[in-house]
Design a binder for these strands. Structure first.
Length: 607
DNA sequence: GCCGTTTTCGGCCCGACTGTTTTCAGTCG
């Protein structure tokens, strides 16, 4: 499992950009209050932790900063608002007087005195060097103090001149490794979309299952937690001792490079640049190892801490008391020993799941089989690839009872969007099909463009003939937060508006979310009796997890839709379910788990 | 720097692999 504290990428509007210089400068522009997001503060705390670690500070002090950074990233509340309301920040776990003051300073001034002081000792750029695998704080410190290396470019030059291997503690191999890592860093080995990773992980797992001596094979790590992107693939294998499984694994045809290889643990890079870590344990350690290898890191730390308080030591081999193994054969046994019920992998982010488990508040998470319909699909009539009838049959094969046909509207010309006349024709077609198809009901819908001014791209007379109206933003992504939010709120005020599709507009790894106040949108949905979509397309997975959780808390139903453009796209629903589970959603929190007769009244606006 | 069913001081999650060592530090997961 990748070990950097995660969550930024999942945080939607809490974008992953750090606290950039330009942002700091513009924080207090004349008369304009620039927002500071939790992610920005978290980035500062993370940088302080990096710098302190390079300066060889007490590791627990470093950990306190990292921990606080993590807390802010995962916090469902806006810290800026908390400061403005004079809330007591020390009530947050891991935040004491000192960190509370630093956070307050950041919110109020956009600066952190301590970070400024650290920058006088160490240039900000050295923390970049930590991103090179093989370079940790100690080596970065040596590189800076001994060779005055502070940037990637300087590191590159030192490698070329073979100056690295002259340093004590460094050798020829280390230098070569750094050279290698630098080349890869330049090639930008990013994270893999979950759906892409699945295409490599699942065949590899199947191949491993056929090896002699292998008993169980599970893809663990962030993949098992259904994160929208994964940095690597973690595979747990149980096998009898002395089986040659690791040796055999390293002969897998797709491996481009072996990073490390031991009897119980190996890391390789596949030809597509995806890193795979494999761990082999004995069957009696299966549960403890699976728990350990599923992560997240912060969840594991919290669980070990709980165990420790009860005199237990938890590692990947089992749960131990006074040196004697107590259990660990199943994940359930690990949780049981620390006094908790089983926590589903998707919740294991140290985001309140442990407290919820302790208090018996864990939701019974939604499953794929709970879905009764899909409220957002396309056919050949706009930019889909298959006929209405083919889409209906495919939906039926996926166990769905109803399917809303929601073509694009005319504004989206590139997608051959429908004008009122064409839409009227499709409405008639759907009526005919519904008489013909016995096992599934087609609903009449549209994915109508929300125009820049918040109006909908089709006239009311035609919208009024539909079962549901799915609104979506497909352009003018660059509006200010205020204007973008107003645009969407206005659309939701429309009496025919039912459902907001892909609410943040992001494309994972390709396009950031547009800047929008999602909390206001969620509250508007509650007020107006409409819904938010969780788009199951693995490139979108939008609504993101923390906003699913907030929608649930605010009492707004989420609709998990495939946005299918072909009969194959219904398979994507499983990714939507993964994200929904990460967002704590249960069956009752999801609109399209309702059978058709229960759904229909919910689609009719009463306000 | 944080925190308290052992505690306001003394702890703080745990182990594998590599390279440069000659018993272990550094890094990573």
């Amino acid at each position: 499992m990748e070990e950097s504290y995660e969550g930024l990428a999942d945080a939607g509007a809490l974008t992953s950009r750090g606290l950039q210089e330009s942002f700091l400068c513009s924080y207090f522009m004349e008369g304009v209050f620039m927002p500071i997001h939790n992610a920005d503060i978290a980035a500062v705390l993370e940088e302080i932790a990096d710098l302190l670690e390079i300066e060889n500070a007490n590791i627990f002090r470093v950990r306190a900063y990292r921990n606080a950074s993590h807390i802010l990233q995962e916090l469902g509340k806006d810290v800026r608002t908390m400061v403005e309301q004079a809330d007591d920040l020390t009530k947050l776990p891991g935040i004491g007087d000192d960190l509370a003051h630093k956070i307050q300073e950041l919110v109020e001034t956009g600066h952190c005195t301590m970070l400024d002081k650290l920058h006088q000792q160490l240039p900000a750029t050295v923390t970049e060097l930590l991103k090179i695998p093989g370079l940790g704080p100690k080596r970065v410190r040596a590189l800076y103090h001994e060779l005055d290396i502070r940037t990637m470019e300087q590191l590159q030059r030192a490698v070329r001149n073979h100056r690295i291997q002259t340093l004590p503690g460094f050798g020829e191999k280390t230098e070569m490794r750094i050279a290698d890592a630098l080349a890869k860093h330049a090639a930008d080995m990013g994270r893999f979309n979950l759906a892409v990773a699945a295409q490599y992980a699942e065949p590899l797992a199947s191949w491993l299952r056929k090896l002699p001596g292998v008993q169980q094979v599970v893809v663990a790590g962030s993949y098992r937690r259904a994160r929208e992107t994964v940095g690597d693939i973690d595979i747990l294998i149980t096998a009898a001792p002395n089986s040659q499984v690791m040796k055999r694994f390293c002969s897998y045809d797709e491996i481009a490079e072996t990073l490390s290889q031991g009897p119980t643990r190996s890391s390789v890079v596949l030809k597509n640049k995806l890193q795979v870590d494999v761990r082999v344990v004995r069957p009696e350690s299966y549960g403890a190892a699976l728990h350990y290898f599923t992560g997240s890191k912060s969840h594991n730390i919290a669980i070990r801490r709980l165990g420790r308080a009860q005199g237990l030591k938890i590692n990947e081999y089992g749960v131990f008391k006074a040196g004697a193994r107590v259990n660990g054969e199943t994940e359930e046994s690990v949780y049981q020993l620390v006094g908790l019920p089983f926590i589903p992998p998707e919740l294991r982010e140290d985001r309140g799941e442990i407290e919820a488990a302790r208090d018996g508040r864990l939701p019974r998470l939604i499953e794929l089989s709970d879905l009764k319909g899909d409220l957002h699909v396309h056919s050949k009539a706009s930019d889909g690839h298959d006929t209405l009838e083919a889409m209906a049959q495919a939906a039926r094969q996926h166990g769905l009872e109803y399917l809303a046909i929601t073509e694009h509207s005319s504004r989206l010309a590139v997608a051959r969007g429908l004008d009122p006349v064409k839409l009227a024709k499709q409405i008639d077609m759907i009526d005919c099909l519904n008489e013909k198809l016995p096992d599934i009901t087609l609903l009449k819908g549209i994915e109508v463009d929300i125009l820049k001014n918040g109006k909908l791209d089709l006239p009311d007379w035609i919208l009024g003939k539909l079962d549901l109206v799915v609104g979506a933003v497909h352009g003018s992504f660059g509006l200010s937060r205020a204007r973008q939010t107003e645009r969407i709120l206005r659309a939701m005020d429309h009496p025919h508006f039912t459902l907001l599709a892909h609410p943040s507009g992001r494309l994972i790894g390709k396009r950031e979310s547009y800047d929008v106040d999602m909390l206001r949108i969620i509250r508007k949905a509650k007020e107006r009796g409409c819904y938010l979509e969780l788009n199951a397309n693995p490139k979108r997975l939008d609504l993101v997890d923390i906003y699913c959780q907030i929608a649930k808390d605010e009492g707004v139903l989420v609709s998990i839709d495939s946005d299918a453009h072909s009969v194959f796209d219904f398979d994507n629903l499983r990714f939507g379910i993964g994200q929904a589970r990460r967002g704590w959603l249960a069956r009752q929190d999801v609109l399209n788990t309702r059978p058709l007769e229960a759904l229909r009244p919910l689609l009719r606006r009463t306000m």
